[in-house]
Design a protein around this nucleic acid. Structure first.
Lengths: 335, 335
DNA sequence: AAAAACCGCTCAAACGATTGTGCAATTTTA
DNA sequence: TAAAATTGCACAATCGTTTGAGCGGTTTTT
């Protein structure tokens, strides 16, 4: 049924060692005769032998596995990221253990511990929360960790992220160029570095246009509900903004829901620019103008840097920000 | 640095066996004195010991891991399914290895083999292709396999899927009830069982309404491009249909793209019903009327049946079809 | 002809846990 | 007080590989 080296060894009349060496391609290196080698290979093929990866993992102290900690696979942004990472990892002959942290710091830390116990060779993570002691210790003492999207400011852990500042700045400038002055910004988690960079970009663009007096930042979660509630609040103010800058895809969905309830039309009644890109946004009412993050590039780069570290190479710069691009939709009106 | 049973044993002056028994909670079962047990626990806690899961896997011949073979994480339908499955698996104390087969039968089979070599305790798979000899052999000889969404017709492998026939029938009936007679159906992979059930539902609904003369089924892939090209072809016919039934979310995106290029408006110029549901569809132009598959229920049920088999329980019915629901959008016009 | 080199393979330890059995020392029972 | 039972732990095998060292026999070198 389940074959192993020893069953093959006894059937071919050689030692386990010899079988192992032949089947791992080291026959000539250890001077196994061609005749013996062929006999072993034939038997292995006949009985459909495949080595136990579990046993190899133990002996080699290497699992050819990497762990991926993602906050939410149901978010298309992270799903695409996971998809790209998994295929990059696969391309290198590794497999991926995926842990969905559901945006919870406890789950995140538990996942990290689990991955270390499973002796993954590397970890790619989108962190939750601000406490980086555990992940930092793991990166120093056990396996290389690579952060994607989110990161810890002023800290040494390597990461690949979007140039969120530029994204915030460009999106805001776009609205300003269209004549908007009163631009509200609905943000996500306030302790998230990308969020704060986006906000900083927004503020700088406003300031540069001498619109600081109109600055308005609200919100505290990257969720549909947060976008919905903050928009509800915004609309109830006596001075309604002419544009909204939503700092994530989910926030935008919430904004849209609130606007629809209020029977306000985009871009006639209000303009909207969203962070994040997704194919569906082209078919929305109207197609959204948005800041597209280079998801695939980030994934590939994160994998590359991680594997360089796994392979013992010391990568150069390992805190990288890739430029986002603006995708023009029809959700911004000229004033 | 990396602690193991032997370092703890030598520091506490007992045998490895004793340490193992204490730390795995079997102290009293093997009559280890309280004093010794406490001493060992204290030392383990002090040095932050965690057992090597790799070693446990080998010895216990169990990995507490399940493999998930998904065709494409960038498809929101499968991403949500993966998300639900991963959290169900996690809830049971297992971890998930995810393999993205990219809709390729070769990748699928390679993934299966890999998972078996890694000795996962069970496999949840959305299969690709029609040849089920490998997956079937694995299910019989190695680990339990559970199919989701797609399955092999007239074959014993257990699965959970949507009642695709009902989905096809209901969606078509809805269009018929709205007065449509000429309803085109754009299908996906023709060898896929769900696809064919949807088509069968479509045909039966047409027949029941005595509209067989208007039946029209085209297409061969669950992709945006297929939806796009088939719509282009449809529109170039001299008798244009009044409605399109698209058998997947991606196909619908392609339809929308083609209609937009032709400057045709939904539902005024053409009606559309789509298979699959996604939050974004509510914000599209117009919100789509669609057949929503019970993704989460399928995931939970698939996990339950798989774990029942892993635990040696013999589940009752294990080829299940869950009913889809229709979500009313505004993409169907009355004639 | 002795020394060196080579050939073809095996031994045994190791990776880090789990587990059935066994064995002294102590305590209880008869 | 001798036999029986209990206590508290250790020995050693096992899971399935990998790998450095070694060994007897043949061939080549000096």
């Amino acid at each position: 049924m389940k074959e192993n080296l020893s069953t093959i060894a006894s059937r071919t009349g050689v030692s386990i060692t010899t079988v192992s060496r032949v089947l791992s391609g080291n026959a000539s290196k250890y001077r196994i005769s061609n005749a013996t080698a062929e006999r072993i290979k034939a038997e292995a093929a006949r009985c459909n032998y495949a080595p136990s990866i579990v046993a190899q993992n133990l002996r080699k102290r290497k699992t050819r596995t990497i762990g991926l900690l993602t906050p939410s696979l149901s978010n298309p942004y992270f799903a695409e990221m996971a998809s790209s990472i998994i295929s990059e990892v696969h391309r290198r002959g590794y497999t991926t253990i995926v842990i969905d942290t559901m945006e919870d710091e406890g789950n995140f830390n538990e996942g990290l511990t689990q991955l270390v116990a499973r002796q993954v060779d590397g970890i790619i993570a989108v962190p939750c929360g601000q406490d980086h002691t555990l992940v930092d210790g793991i990166n120093n003492d056990f396996v290389p960790v690579m952060l994607v999207d989110r990161y810890y400011e002023d800290y040494a852990l390597p990461y690949v992220t979007t140039n969120n500042y530029k994204g915030g700045f460009d999106a805001t400038s776009l609205l300003i160029d269209a004549g908007h002055k009163s631009i509200a910004c609905i943000q996500g988690v306030r302790t998230s570095a990308p969020n704060n960079e986006r906000v900083r970009g927004y503020r700088d663009a406003m300031e540069e246009a001498k619109l600081s007096a109109f600055e308005f930042v609200a919100g505290n979660e990257f969720s549909i509900q947060n976008g919905y509630l903050e928009t509800k609040l915004l609309l109830s103010r006596h001075q309604r903004p002419t544009a909204i800058f939503a700092l994530s895809n989910n926030i935008s969905l919430g904004v849209l829901k609130a606007l629809r309830e209020a029977r306000l039309r985009i871009p006639d009644d209000l303009s909207l620019v969203s962070f994040d890109n997704y194919a569906y946004m082209d078919y929305m009412e109207p197609p959204l103008t948005r800041v597209s993050q280079p998801v695939e590039d980030m994934a590939i780069l994160a994998a590359k840097i991680l594997f360089d570290r796994i392979d013992g190479l010391t990568p150069g710069a390992s805190q990288l920000r890739l430029s986002p691009t603006i995708i023009q939709g029809e959700s911004v009106g000229r004033l």
